[in-house]
């Protein structure tokens, strides 16, 4: 078990407790037939589940904290995100091209995928339910400020809100603004105040009390 994953849970699933409707049976049938046909093994499945489980917002938070403390890294992250993450953060595999968008005093970025639920799983872990919800997918492009308000996030009317509809081959990471009062903090401490939602753009980073 990875020790650095705050969202870690036991894989010792009690299958009997799971829902047993048509789609759960369809999933079990598909899995067992593919294993019998030798397409992959049960061990492959376990390893893959563990690999995805290891991905969490903690990875994204480390990237953000590094960018806040290292101007050179930040510049490379903004211009060639995938390469910077792979080479300098040693996160592998980085499964897609990544566009990092920076929040500033003038611009607030927020990410949505209206067509499905494209999300940078390899640096943020699995997407939360709300990101996949039809409410978020339908409304975030047309009423972003209203949607952000539903997260308790009020963006100053003077700032530009820039929505990114992530529908094709790029994946997005929002680089939030470093909150005042955290200047001089070490990278690790900074990473501790960066939450998942701040890297999707539905929240802003608040300093820890």
């Amino acid at each position: 078990m990875p020790h650095d994953d705050p969202h870690d849970h036991s894989h010792a699933a009690v299958e009997a407790d799971e829902p047993q409707g048509y789609y759960q049976h369809l999933a079990a049938a598909t899995r067992s037939l593919l294993i019998e046909k030798g397409v992959f093994s049960a061990a492959d499945m376990r390893a893959m589940i563990e690999q995805i489980d290891r991905r969490s917002p903690a990875l994204g938070a480390k990237i953000v904290a590094r960018a806040w403390t290292d101007e050179g890294f930040k510049a490379r992250l903004l211009s060639r995100g995938k390469q910077a993450i792979k080479e300098e953060m040693e996160i592998d595999p980085v499964a897609a091209d990544i566009v990092v968008v920076e929040n500033t005093a003038a611009v607030h970025n927020v990410v949505v995928c209206t067509l499905c639920s494209c999300y940078p799983v390899f640096i943020l872990g699995r997407p939360p339910d709300w990101y996949k919800s039809y409410a978020y997918r339908s409304r975030a492009v047309r009423d972003p400020r209203g949607v952000l308000r539903e997260f308790g996030t009020e963006i100053d009317p003077a700032r530009e809100v820039r929505v990114h509809d992530s529908t094709a081959d790029m994946r997005y990471l929002v680089l939030p603004m470093q909150p005042a009062g955290t200047e001089g903090w070490l990278e690790e401490r900074l990473a501790g105040i960066v939450t998942r939602d701040t890297m999707v753009g539905t929240a802003e980073v608040r300093p820890a009390e």
């Binding site: 492009v141 009423d143 972003p144 400020r145 009317p157 003077a158 700032r159 530009e160 809100v161 820039r162 929505v163 990114h164 509809d165 992530s166 529908t167 094709a168 081959d169 790029m170």
Partner: peptide, 11 residues
């Protein structure tokens, strides 16, 4: 209804 400078980026 938002800020007139609000934008949306799409691939």
């Amino acid at each position: 209804t938002g800020n007139p400078n609000d934008t949306i980026d799409i691939e």
